[in-house]
Nucleic acid binder design. Sequence first.
DNA 1: CCCGTAGATGTTGACGTCAACATGTTACCG
DNA 2: CGGTAACATGTTGACGTCAACATCTACGGG
Lengths: 346, 346
Amino acid sequence: MAAELKPGTRDRGRRGPSMLDVARLAGVSGQTVSRVSNGHDNVDAATRERVLAAMRELGYRPNRAARALRTGQFRSIAVIVFELSSFGTTRSLDAIATAATARGYAVNLIPVLSATEERLSETFAGLDHQAVDGAVILIEAHLLDEVRLPETLPTVVVDSSALFDYPIVDTDQAQGARQATEHLLDLGHRTVWHVSGPTESYSAIRRRASWEETLTERGLEVPPVLAGDWSVDSGYTAGLELARNDEVTAVFAANDQMALGVLHALHEHGREVPGDVSVVGFDDMDESAHFWPPLTTVRQSFVEVGEATVDALIHEIQSGEHHREPVRIGTQLVVRDSTAAPRSTP
Amino acid sequence: MAAELKPGTRDRGRRGPSMLDVARLAGVSGQTVSRVSNGHDNVDAATRERVLAAMRELGYRPNRAARALRTGQFRSIAVIVFELSSFGTTRSLDAIATAATARGYAVNLIPVLSATEERLSETFAGLDHQAVDGAVILIEAHLLDEVRLPETLPTVVVDSSALFDYPIVDTDQAQGARQATEHLLDLGHRTVWHVSGPTESYSAIRRRASWEETLTERGLEVPPVLAGDWSVDSGYTAGLELARNDEVTAVFAANDQMALGVLHALHEHGREVPGDVSVVGFDDMDESAHFWPPLTTVRQSFVEVGEATVDALIHEIQSGEHHREPVRIGTQLVVRDSTAAPRSTP
DNA sequence: CCCGTAGATGTTGACGTCAACATGTTACCG
DNA sequence: CGGTAACATGTTGACGTCAACATCTACGGG
């Protein structure tokens, strides 16, 4: 990609017109301009027209800094992310940014440079320096347990934690994991192996717990868990182990990226998918439909989670109260070619 | 994922301590606090210590709105994106955010809700409402040709356009495409087919031009281009066509996602990779090493592009001048299993 | 014909910070 | 020992906006 600068001169340094400039041109007071600018209705229609015309003529834009200084609100929220490499994080960020923008809030993207406790503390402390009214924390919760959250700022943690007593918005991880597991069992598999996300992630923990519960409910053996970290590489490593074990006929990976790694390892070892082994993922990335074979997976609605998250945060910002009603966003199983009945059903 | 709110009370509404509170506690004037706060060196060491102690005790944080109002600078840049679905965009955003944060600038993420001209104009107009000193535009350039860029704001367009006369920072698209094409030719392929990015993208245009040039230089036939749009789906569609054509033995896709689509189509039609057809991508996504077969691709350094972009923008913000020296960031061919010599070299 | 009232508009001051300028203090020079 | 540079610190006002309050006008009822 290329970067380019706009040519031509530009009067940097000179500030734009202020409310008073508009007021002068329209022959009214600054306050009236303010009222028009904020959409208050106690302004005569003709006056409003005159002010709007003046605004247009001067190219007036309200100064956000002054407004924020005066009102004490920035109309801006921070989103703290660790890495944009994981599909889930990226999608959530997109959804949150879209929802916030639609609600008239700006989004401050704050990357944590490395996932050490120290950096994280630094970032949270720095949050007070940012011009924001609240924050969404898009980082696996475990890291937070050691770290003091900002105390003076409304905060929503996406991916809940044992330390916080009531989760507000969540993809229904349990439902999704159950759908994946049951799909494989219903096809006739004896049991289902699991490649989990990092133990520090509560999403991962819930998916795993639900997988285990589903097996137990049916009185089935629960195979040992292979722990990954959401990355393709970790899925591949787990896959190598699974490929060596002839007993494995069905695998549920906690996300699509790890599922891809598993597929890779199985291919390498000449185990056919879905002939020898069936694989299910979680997320439904754009790519998943084109894996080889196309991946059966669980689709979650990042859009809904993003909207609910932003709503909860804005509600807290504006009212000072928590939104106590938990919201569960449903999941949907998408069946593709990576799953089939086991070759030899006894 | 889950969202959760911090429990406990919090004194919303009450503002934090101001400079004057600190000044009072430290027994100095507000101005001295300001000097300490801004790291000026004309403050006595003992006084500075006293002020810092007072800041710590009160939990003082400078108010960004007031500072911005006073100085006229927000120390914040906007990044305008269309969708976070494409790998390149996401990676660039990550790199830009990291670079900007490291340089003390906040990042305002501004999503364009749909890629219509109207929405784009709206977004650019709205830029003046944002509390930012400059903007990075991370949208394929073609859309911009129809749209007035913000005029009063330093702006850097990532992915240059014919309308802007000097690209500043760029992955060396030409070099990358040449590496990919030559790699295939050096393996003994007669010619190389190309699945291009959207014609509105200048990155895509350059990759395509360089591929064509490389073939022409060697006096080889230039096959018709298959036009994609960066998406996996479009790669799959192009792949279907390529799979039907027995003459095709080597394909260069303009990004990894489309390469994945091509692989899918080839598999479906029973054409072996790399036995029958070799495939090269562009980007080196995390996933690419685990495609089946692992994908040969061109790695580009988003980090360097991001840093150079932010540097150029900040330079313009602070000096008012354009940075005229173009920068080209090199690419690197990563050879994996998706490429090999053609089966029958005549 | 006066007063009350509602709605439109104006005036004032403060939000927190920092640049510019003013003042105070120390120390070194010839 | 007066003069003055070099440095530390203080005072003042303005950045652009909006809430609170003050004023003005028009109109209807008594």
